[in-house]
Design a protein around this nucleic acid. Structure first.
Lengths: 343, 343
DNA sequence: TTGTAGGCGTTATCAA
DNA sequence: TTGATAACGCCTACAA
């Protein structure tokens, strides 16, 4: 039960009777080595179960480590799960390993995570910025060549690349779709906090659509929710108004779940719904859920390739890349307004 | 635009005019330091933006790094996303950082990931074993004190802890529920490959339930699917049989999505369904989806706490911890069989 | 083809 | 209270 030390290069060298450098050469296919030496070394490596210490190697070689740091609000949110998978797929053949953490949208936790990643000398930093976070502390790192890419929302206080969805036009399109089907009172259920970038942009798209259609903006139709239960409650509140909305626009996937659940619970089939971001089983609902779909895989891939090209020396100006959304018509967004109001 | 070196302990020391060790002492609150020195050091640290190199520190200190390695089949699967979040929550206050990777259920990729993690000297290894993977190569590491915990499925060739759902009894309960509602021909749509541990266990539970009820086992009612589309196809195939099932049991969450989608598409309201593993919006379906719910948060937490207690010196025998599942009755599992067959 | 010396950034040890 | 020296495991540079 001895907690034995892991074997080192020197242990392997001793086993074979050569110098550590020779072992290093064989393993890294650096410099020459006689066939016999090579064979003996490999045998000893297998026998001892030697695995090179990547941290020691990195210390010596200098430069960034072969890791990539990723901060998301919540590992359990399917949207960020899909983004993370896509990032991993993209960087795999570069041999990069993923360091991940959830910020819970807390700037302090985000900072703690990025600091840890920086202390580990990650080669790339990918961050979904939390509300209220400031990223000016990353300036020095950017200057020394660390690629930083913001995902889903732009960063604050730092000129770095970001990859976001077409939130404003996407939301506009979804709301315009409802208007096209005769709705004049359209509720908006957004995320919290209201300062959240995606919430602001999507809300702006909502107002754009109203304005272009010449519809009045009614503040009482706008509400917010932090989670699925909150969205259900918000839905119920909206529908209980004296002059309730005939359609609802969901500001994100979690909110959509809450709205749909509440409508099912109260057996309200007459309320039209369009959601920003797709959800599983959207097609199996009755009616199926019309959504403005995001492309998490493309977002992740774009963020990763952008970061990699920076790593490879791309010094062009920081870009904001907008990944288009797509309206998927399935039924819930096409329920007609119960009565077309007279002008 | 100079790609400047990151500041080191020596840089800070030079700035203040003390030795590197003194700076180290201040930062680690090791040994004594005069108030003045401390203040000067902290000022210099802030000025230079010094962040200790965790890799260098670890080299010197020896022992495992403050990272934890986690291998899952797919970062994008909500089940594993929930498990990962729960693990992170559990280890956060120990200061551990998560190293993650997707194996795609490929033993080679799993091995590549674990090898990378081991080369990084993770303090804990958490693995969802791939089908066909062998874990005997981890014996040495276990012997040197590395905690290894398998999640969702037991490992092969290594006596280590594992945390799994009560697959067999859970599946039994779900199928028995269908039987109790009069169904005698119950289709089973499992995952692929059929050798997958969870698939085998759940299938065994299915057969248990049939046997206890004295129902015949009909091989033509058993099918499998790799993804949602495959599950839809399998569903359609089963329902097209000459003597089709009146109820379906879904072997996992992805399969459930496929079954529900296909039933919605073909407007089959008469087929009863119970799913192993819960899905979002299950309550909003019509009828709502009856499930055998797993507890991913509890699975993650249990795996993490087990590993931490091993890290803290627990040398007791390896355990297999079974996290109970729970039948959630919502409607789809209670649709009665169309006609009760005569005995 | 192989080995030696030295250093990466940090901390342990011992001395001052 | 502080510092010099050595060492962690590995690689670079140079020499043999």
């Amino acid at each position: 039960m001895a907690a034995n030390r892991r074997p080192t290069l020197a242990d392997v060298a001793r086993e074979v009777g050569v110098s550590a450098k020779t072992v290093s050469r064989v393993l890294n296919e650096d410099g020459p080595a006689s066939a016999e030496t090579r064979e003996q070394v490999l045998a000893a490596v297998a026998k001892l179960g030697f695995q090179p210490n990547l941290m020691a190697r990195n210390i010596r070689v200098g430069g960034p480590d072969t890791t990539i740091g990723l901060v998301v609000p919540d590992l359990g949110n399917p949207f960020f799960g899909a983004v993370a998978r896509s990032i991993e797929d993209t960087v795999r053949d570069r041999g990069l390993t993923l360091l991940m953490g959830s910020s819970a949208d807390d700037p302090d936790r985000e900072r703690a995570l990025t600091d840890k990643f920086l202390s580990r000398r990650v080669s790339i930093l990918l961050v979904v910025p939390s509300v209220g976070a400031d990223h000016s502390h990353l300036k020095t790192h950017r200057a020394t060549g660390l690629p930083v890419v913001f995902i889903d929302r732009p960063g604050v206080g730092l000129a770095a690349d970001s990859v976001v969805s077409s939130n404003r036009t996407g939301a506009h399109d979804g709301v315009a779709h409802l208007i096209a089907h005769g709705h004049r009172r359209i509720g908006f259920v957004g995320d919290l906090p209201v300062k959240l970038y995606t919430r602001r942009e999507r809300f702006a798209g909502y107002r754009d659509a109203l304005e272009r259609a010449g519809l009045p903006y009614d503040r009482s139709l706008v509400t917010n929710a932090h989670d699925q239960q909150g969205a259900s409650a918000a839905t119920s509140r909206l529908l209980g108004l004296a002059d309730p909305p005939t359609a609802l626009f969901a500001g994100n996937n979690i909110v959509a779940l809450g709205i749909v659940a509440e409508l099912a619970r109260s057996r309200r089939k007459d309320v039209a719904v369009v959601s920003f971001d797709d959800v599983p089983l959207a097609e199996a609902l009755e009616p199926a859920l019309t959504v403005v779909a995001q492309a998490p895989e493309e977002i992740g891939r774009t963020a990763a390739t952008t970061a990699l090209s920076r790593l490879d020396g791309d010094r062009s100006r920081a870009r904001t890349i907008t990944v288009p959304t797509r309206l998927i018509v399935r039924g819930s967004g096409e329920r007609p307004a119960p009565e077309l109001q007279r002008a």
